[in-house]
Design a protein around this nucleic acid. Sequence first.
DNA 1: CACTATAGCAAACAACTGTTTGTTTTTGGA
DNA 2: TCCAAAAACAAACAGTTGTTTGCTATAGTG
Lengths: 208, 208
Amino acid sequence: MPATARAAAKPAPRASARLAAVPRSDNRLPLILDAAARFFSEKGFGYTSMRDIAGMAGMLPGSLYYHFASKEELLVAVYAEGVRRIKAVVEPALAKGGDPWTRLESACAAHLEGLLEDSTYGQVVIRVRPDDAPEVAARLVALRDEYEATFGQAIAALPLPPRTDRRALKLMLLGALNWSQTWYRSGKDSPQVLARRFVRLLRDPLDA
Amino acid sequence: MPATARAAAKPAPRASARLAAVPRSDNRLPLILDAAARFFSEKGFGYTSMRDIAGMAGMLPGSLYYHFASKEELLVAVYAEGVRRIKAVVEPALAKGGDPWTRLESACAAHLEGLLEDSTYGQVVIRVRPDDAPEVAARLVALRDEYEATFGQAIAALPLPPRTDRRALKLMLLGALNWSQTWYRSGKDSPQVLARRFVRLLRDPLDA
DNA sequence: CACTATAGCAAACAACTGTTTGTTTTTGGA
DNA sequence: TCCAAAAACAAACAGTTGTTTGCTATAGTG
């Protein structure tokens, strides 16, 4: 799918010898990020062309390369912003009061919010597989891990029976939440409702 | 990504007027399917070219079109075989004796087996999104649903407290299992061990 | 007002994509 | 042995891909 994939040095904002580069006020970089996030989240990384993105941002394909050295670098930027945004909703949820189970439920609801519906940046983080951009895969994984650690705190705080496998619990819950991108349809159950159901299934004893 | 995407009629095995078409003994079609399954599972649908597949099958790109009308039709064939194989391991697991919880655990282990490690066909079913092949997306979804119904039986048989949301339970468990493709690393915990852990987390009361 | 860094345009590039077409080889049944 | 069907080859097609290059406009600072 990539025509050529040679590593390219970053040509972007170069600093002059004595003065820091200062961006203009009519900076259209956010527009590019928005367009990329929209396409990456809806069609995936590989199915999105630089022309798609440039078109939606109202500029020519080549112009994107002033801001990003490559398509993959653009992905990194979107990915990073995605992680930032999910953390921005989950961390407050964790900081809120209530018992650990309630806080976990809030965190799950926040996670789903940052991942479904209109949160295109968040969707990218879950949808795009790091291997799709080999050159920067390691950085994407690092970004994802960074967030998952945040989520892990909610589980670490849980009062659980002595021998409970918390790692498995995290993998299970996070997997269930992330996979919701596959079956979730807007207009049906809200993220909050889903989070409540999932957490309840874990908390309440199912064995009759 | 598709250069041209006009709908093409199926040119493949055409039956003569009076005699059923009989395939040759040196039929290399399975080879094609194997190669496609391997690439689709490892690189994804969009990142795999017909040249990749043809190369691994030891033939020229154009020759694939004797067997399949399009790349998407080839995907359908692999997908169908994938569903067949997963069912082939899960259904026996369900038929085995034991209480419903044990049977569910067996089904989960089987599901994971058909989805991780060397089961390239099964991996395709989970990895490839139906929207990646718009022309045949509906058929892919139908195939997936067909299997998920099978899995649903294991959950329907569970003796659960009266008001338990079985649909949510299915979505949660299946999501957790499918997402394992993201973090699973061969050589660590086996599918059986993982299945046991996940089911136990659901079954045992976590609230202390 | 001059000047420099920022931002973007215009046009091309080489590589790669799925697919088609006409022809050739090979097989198995009559 | 003959021959139709099956299978594959060989070579091209038109379009798309990420990216590069040289040039121009514009904004903001001294």
